[in-house]
């Protein structure tokens, strides 16, 4: 943990993180789809299928509804930009990324919120019933996710005495005993529920449905097509990778590069990819076994996550 990496090395690292997230997002989705298909007894499309889909979409013509304003084409850009910024500054491969001092957990959360708000605005800009329906539901779930998320962050930040992501991760590397404490376990469960809700996976939302009564995220992006739809889909998959990586690094930090140098980094890429793939397979397997919750049952799930997060903070104080 000594020696300051050079600016060039840190920037290269950030660039590597961004590129891996861009490529890893669609591949993760492909992997999860494959696992799901296999468990249901189907062959399923190849893992690289989402990448091929993106290429197909990107070549199509751009369209937008007649009555929409400049918000409609801007929304996917803002969504993608927020995730790119997080991918660049967050400690995904190393505990010392470029601008790691700026990777505050609260800032990351509010950046994601910025993306979600713009996607909802883009949906409302179409002036259709579906856009409004999706936006209303997504924002309701988003508003209710926030308390659980921030209190869970608090539970992680209290022992580390900071909400800076690289600092939290390197401190848990230094004190591995922290990872087994009750507050970590409780916070982990809260985080998993929050990530399921934020990324619109089962049982909160079904990404594979186009049924009016149940769709949330798909209703919001119904009017997007061509390169704009590709951008939304890519951004959503990138968000899943970033969330999985942060989850993995916060709760199972081993493998992340603590020191500079290409060898550490290469090891970290392999370890992180492995952890994220494991989480993806686990979530896909879980998704096969559950049914989607009714929309008005989702708040109960999120309230449960909030209670767990509060318990995590309280136990953090009792233990500390």
């Amino acid at each position: 943990m000594s020696g300051h990496p050079s600016v060039v090395a840190m920037t290269a690292n950030s660039l590597l993180q961004v590129i891996l997230v861009i490529l890893g997002g669609p591949l993760l989705l492909g992997l999860m789809r494959k696992v799901r298909c296999r468990m249901e007894g189907r062959a399923g499309p190849p893992i690289r299928q989402p990448l091929l889909d993106l290429r197909k979409l990107a070549r199509r013509e751009r369209t937008r509804p007649e009555e929409s304003s400049w918000i409609f084409p801007l929304a996917p850009v803002v969504l993608a930009a927020t995730i790119l910024v997080v991918a660049a500054i967050a400690p995904m491969l190393t505990t010392r990324p470029a601008f790691g001092w700026a990777a505050d957990l609260f800032a990351v959360v509010f950046l994601f919120l910025l993306g979600s708000v713009f996607l909802a605005l883009g949906a409302l800009d179409t002036g259709t019933a579906f856009g409004g329906m999706g936006a209303s539901r997504a924002m309701t779930i988003g508003a209710l996710t926030e308390p659980a998320l921030l209190v869970a962050i608090l539970a992680l930040s209290v022992p580390a005495r900071t909400s800076n992501l690289p600092a939290i991760i390197s401190q848990s590397l230094d004190h591995p005993a922290w990872l087994a404490t009750p507050q970590r376990v409780l916070a982990l469960v809260a985080f998993v529920i929050v990530i399921i809700a934020e990324s619109g996976r089962l049982p909160v939302d079904n990404p594979a449905t186009h049924l009016e009564l149940t769709m949330i995220h798909e209703a919001m992006v119904l009017e997007y097509g061509g390169p704009d739809l590709a951008l939304v889909k890519l951004a959503e998959s990138m968000r899943l990778v970033v969330l999985f990586t942060l989850l993995a690094n916060l709760f199972i930090p081993w493998g992340i590069a603590g020191a500079p140098g290409p060898s550490h980094l290469a090891l970290s890429v392999v370890a992180t990819a492995g952890k994220v793939a494991f989480l993806g397979i686990a979530m896909a397997a879980f998704e096969v076994t559950v049914a989607k919750l009714r929309l008005f049952r989702v708040p109960e799930l999120l309230a449960g996550a909030f209670v767990l997060a509060v318990l995590a903070v309280v136990s953090a104080l009792v233990v500390a």
């Binding site: 013509e61 751009r62 369209t63 937008r64 509804p65 007649e66 009555e67 259709t128």
Partner: peptide, 9 residues
């Protein structure tokens, strides 16, 4: 290419 204005679904 240019953006085509379409009718919303």
């Amino acid at each position: 290419g240019p953006v085509r204005l379409t009718e919303a679904w």
